[in-house]
Nucleic acid binder design. Sequence first.
DNA 1: TCTGGGGTCCTAGGACCC
DNA 2: TCTGGGGTCCTAGGACCC
Length: 417
Amino acid sequence: MIALVDCNNFYASCERVFQPKLENKPIVVLSNNDGCVIARSNEAKSLGIKMGAPAFKMKSIFDHHNVHVFSSNFALYGDLSNRVMQILSNEAPGIEIYSIDEAFLDVKGITKPFKFSTELRKKVGQWTGIPVSIGIAPTKTLAKVANHIAKKHSKEGVFFMKKPSTINQVLKNFSVNELWGIGRKYSEFLSQRGYQTAYDLVNANESWIKNNMTIHGLRMIKELKGISCLPLEYETQRKKNICTSRSFGMDVKKHSELEEAVASYASTCAMKLRKEKSLTSSILVFIKTNSFKDLNSQYNACQKVILDVPSNDSMEITKQALIALERIYKEGFSYKKAGVIVGDIISEESRQLSLFSNQDILKTKNIMSAMDHVNEKMGRNKVRLAAQGFDRKWRLKQEKLSSCYTTRFGDILEVNI
DNA sequence: TCTGGGGTCCTAGGACCC
DNA sequence: TCTGGGGTCCTAGGACCC
C-alpha cells in the first residue's frame, strides 16, 4: 500500500502559519513578478478565483472581498517543505519526495495505515502548522485518487481504499479529467469519445489506450486496476536539464541589461549544478519579447553552445552564455524574458578532459566552493560575478513579499506577551 | 500598465550507418 | 514493369506534472 501525503493549498498555508489572523480569510499567492495566481486558500477558491488567473484581471475581486495577496516567497516555502518532509521521512518506512508539497510513503509493515495516517497528519500539523491530506491505496495513481477524496470529501483528511468494491465505487464517481496523467488535451479527447469517469476508462480497450495515449496512458489504467507500474523512487535522480529563467519586472531593451540578466541566470544554473554535484556541456540561452503584445514587435531566439570539457564553473558557463547571447541579440526590441538551460548533464566524477584544454580545473573548483561557502552563510549572491551587474533594474517585481521567517535571522517573528 | 517557472517522457520523422 | 532489411541517433513537437 502507498500513502500520498499532499499539503493543502501549500503556499497559502505557509503564509498563514506566520499570520494566524488569516485563518478562514481568503489568501492568494502570485507567481514571480506578481503576475498570475499560483496558490489559493479554500476561501479564495470559493470566490471563483482561478488557478493561473492574471492578477491584474482579478484586482476588483481582491479588493471587493478583502483577499490577502502575497508575492511568492520560495525561501519560506522551500524551508517549510523540508520540515514537513523531514517528519514524513522519520515516520514512514520509505518515502519518495515527489514535489515541494507532496510525498509518496511506503506503508509496508504498518498494520493500521489509516490510524498511522491520522496520527501523522496530526503531527505534521502540530509541528509545522501545515495542514495535509493523506490518501492510501494499492498504487500511486490510486493513492492520488484517494488523496483527492481525502481532501474534498472526508472529515478526517485521510482516505483509505483497498477493497476492489470500494475502489470501483470511487472510480465510478471520479471524473476522468481529475486523474493524474490526464491533462487538458486528453480530457477533451476522452470526453469526445464518451469517457466520463475513471471507471469508464478502466474498462476501455488497452491497445486502443496505448495507441492513443502512449505508454503513459496504458500504465495509468493498469495502475487504476491495482497493478503497480510506477514504483516508488527512493533516490532522487540526477536532473537531465536545469533551467533558470525569469520574466523581467520591466521591458529590457539594452544589450548590457540583458547581459546582466543572462549572466545571473547562467551563474544560478552553475550553482544548481554544483549543488547536485553535476556538470554540463551544453548551454542554451533564450530571449523573448512579450507575447501578449502586438505581433509586429515579436522576436524569440535561442542559441546553444557546447563545451569541450563539461563544467559547473560559474565563470566558464557565464562566459559561454554571454557569447551565445551576443549571437542572438537584436537591437530595437523590448525583451520580456530571458533564460539559460543547461543540459547533457553528467556526474562530477565522470568528467572527460580534453587533450588540448589547459583549464586549471582544480583552481576554479576551489574558487567556486569558496564562493558557495560565503553565499551559503551570508546570503545568496553576496559574492557574485561582476557581469551580473549592480543596478539590476530588470529584477522581479515583488510588491507583496512576506518575510523569510525561518531562514533569515532579521526576519524572525517577535512575540509580545 | 499588467499574463510564472521548472521539469519529464514519448513519438514521429529525418539523417545517417552497414 | 519490378529497387531490402536492420539498425542508431538526434530533434522538434506535444503531452503531462508540480
